[in-house]
Amino acid sequence: MKKSWSTALSVAALALVAAPVFGNVASVQAAGPKSGDAALSGVGYANTNGASGWPAAGVEPQTASGTSVAGIGFVAGDLTLNQVPVFDFGVHNIGSSETFSMQPVDSAFRPQKLSGNPITADTKANAGVRALVVTDSRAQMTQTAGYQVILQFSPLQSAKVNDSGQFLDAKGSATTDPTKFTYNTGTDNKPVTMSGASLQFSSASVNPSTDWNAFIGDSLDFGDKAAIYPAIYTNSGKSGPVPAGSMYTTQTRLAAKDAPAAVGTSIDEGKAQVIYRANMKTGFGTWAYDFTAPSSVTMKIPSANQQTGTWVSQLTWVLVDDPTQDHANPIISQLEQ
């Protein structure tokens, strides 16, 4: 009798000890395995009541439970914002123009086509540096749900700078951290802004055929427009090891019909709107929305609104999937004047 009580107590104690561990296991299973994981990465939790935690060493969820991947299997990946472009519209004399193109991109930062002899499994073509790059690997090709990228263009504010043009923080010291910039204020104590600015996006070229290498190699600056192409691809028909975290490819399988869409549009200062959208069944893999061409995006500021000084705006890039969109429809509406 004593022995059975002891056994029962032991079981109860074990259950109590194990309870928190299995409490975390639920979170682990929710997170699921990721491609490239050796097993399961540790998964913590954070709740709105301020509680957060991390499994202690030795009781990490992957040692307690988890989904093992035997042999070979494919798991749903992520929707990932890989890269966004930096727009630099340069310095201009006031009133010299109302439309400003971006600075040219150095050759080293342009899109890189496949090159080298022989082309090996590791040879890859890459997107240009001034490009928006998004990866969608949540579902298999032709099964993707789509996504959209919204750009929010905050008003241009007059920043405080020293004689050398360096931004100043609240203590009057030079800083390169935009979160510490200080701004000139008007008589109403509000930041001085330059109104009427807008960003104009050219329509984007998408390769009508499937030879992306020729598209990137021969279409320097894509006719001075934006362009859309697979951000990474390798040579057609090549085989070889799969680089960690990526899957091998040919250059011929992702066609223009698989590409996300972008149309020429414009965003007024202080506003946010969709600039790039993958509709249902498109956008699978990694695609670049390339702004290498100086006129792919221009800034318009009416002459009457232009003021001397140093002006700062923040561009917020928002990756979201909007349930109200009809993802089968590839056209983005545009404001008429």
Binding site: V86, G309, T316
Partner: peptide, 12 residues
């Protein structure tokens, strides 16, 4: 550090 228009990216 320069005069003119500067644009900084943020992510959401």
């Amino acid at each position: 550090s320069k005069r003119g228009v500067s644009m900084f990216n943020q992510y959401q």
